[in-house]
Amino acid sequence: MNEEKETILLQGEDGTGIECEFGDRFVLDDENYVILIPYRDGLRDEDGILLMQTMKDDEDPDTEYLVALSDPEEINRVFSGYIQQKARAQHADGTCFEQSLKKAVQKD
């Protein structure tokens, strides 16, 4: 089965771009975040993910933009919160979070 992946092209201020696969969207402490999996040379980068906060445009509330998290303490807090949310949800519905996480980071 050839499953289409939702991708996004992130454009840096310097004009460089990086293609990313959409991983997940979640809310933590009333803030919205997304997890993106970058591609390098057309292949998933198995060693990294991007954790970004989504923000609404003040002038156009239908438009969102992404802000990269740069503070290591904030990154750890947000990612730990995400893992806890997923573990609780997986436990509640009887699936194994560890297996799901392992499957999510495996090569396509």
Score class of each variant (00 low, 15 high):
Asn76Asp: 14
Cys20Ala: 04
Leu43Trp: 04
Arg77Glu: 05
Lys107Trp: 15
Val27Met: 09
Pro72Glu: 08
Lys103Tyr: 15
His91Thr: 13
Ile37Trp: 03
Leu66Arg: 05
Leu10Ile: 14
Ala104Val: 04
Ala68Cys: 12
Glu73Gly: 08
Leu50Met: 10
Arg25Ser: 08
Lys56Val: 08
Pro72Tyr: 04
Ala89Asn: 06
Thr54His: 05
Pro38Phe: 00
Glu98Ile: 14
Val67Ser: 08
Gln90Val: 07
Ala104Arg: 15
Phe79Asp: 00
Gln106Asp: 13
Asp45Ile: 01
Gln85His: 04
Gly42His: 00
Arg40Lys: 08
Gly94Ile: 00
Asp93Val: 12
Glu21Asn: 01
Pro61Tyr: 00
Asn76Cys: 08
Val105Ile: 15
Gly23Asp: 00
Leu10Gly: 04
Gln11Tyr: 08
Asp71Leu: 04
Asp58Thr: 06
Glu74Ile: 06
Leu66Cys: 05
Asp57Met: 03
Asp93Tyr: 10
Glu59Tyr: 12
Tyr33Met: 06
Gly42Pro: 03
Asn32Ala: 14
Val67Asn: 06
Thr63Tyr: 09
Glu31Ser: 11
Gln84Met: 13
Arg40Met: 03
Asp93Glu: 13
Glu19Cys: 07
Asp62Ile: 02
Asp62Tyr: 07
Val27Asn: 09
Thr63Gly: 03
Glu13Phe: 13
Ile83Gln: 04
Lys86Asp: 05
Val105Ala: 15
Glu4Lys: 11
His91Lys: 15
Phe22Asn: 05
Pro38Ser: 03
Leu28His: 09
Gln99Glu: 14
Asp29Gly: 00
Asp24Lys: 01
Glu64Val: 09
Asp62Met: 09
Leu101Phe: 14
Lys107Arg: 15
Ile8Thr: 09
Glu59His: 12
Gly42Tyr: 00
Asn76Trp: 08
Glu3Tyr: 10
Asn76Pro: 01
Glu31Gln: 12
Gly81Val: 01
Asn32Phe: 05
Ile37Ser: 07
Gly15Ile: 07
Ile18Glu: 11
Glu73Cys: 07
Phe79His: 04
Lys103Trp: 13
Val105Cys: 15
Tyr65Thr: 05
Met52Asp: 01
Tyr39Leu: 11
Ile18Met: 12
Val34Tyr: 03
Asp108Ala: 13
Ile49Thr: 09
Ile8Tyr: 06
Ile37Pro: 00
Asp58Ile: 04
Pro38Lys: 01
Asp71Ser: 04
Glu13Asp: 13
Gly17Tyr: 05
Gln90Asn: 14
Tyr39Met: 09
Glu19Phe: 02
Gly15Phe: 07
Leu66Tyr: 11
Gly15Asp: 07
Ala87Met: 13
Ile35Trp: 01
Glu19Trp: 03
Arg40Glu: 05
Asp62Thr: 12
Glu31His: 11
Ile83Ser: 02
Gly12Cys: 13
Val67Thr: 10
Glu4Met: 10
Val34Thr: 04
Ala104Asp: 13
Asp58Val: 04
Asp60Lys: 11
Asp30Lys: 12
Tyr82Ala: 00
Arg88Gln: 14
Thr7Asn: 03
Val27Lys: 10
Leu43Cys: 08
Arg25Ala: 08
Lys86Phe: 07
Ile37Val: 11
Glu13Met: 13
Gly23Thr: 00
Glu64Pro: 06
Asp57Gln: 06
Leu50Trp: 07
Lys103Ala: 15
Thr16Arg: 12
Glu21Arg: 00
Arg88His: 11
Glu98Tyr: 14
Asp24Cys: 04
Leu36Thr: 02
Leu36Pro: 05
Glu21Val: 01
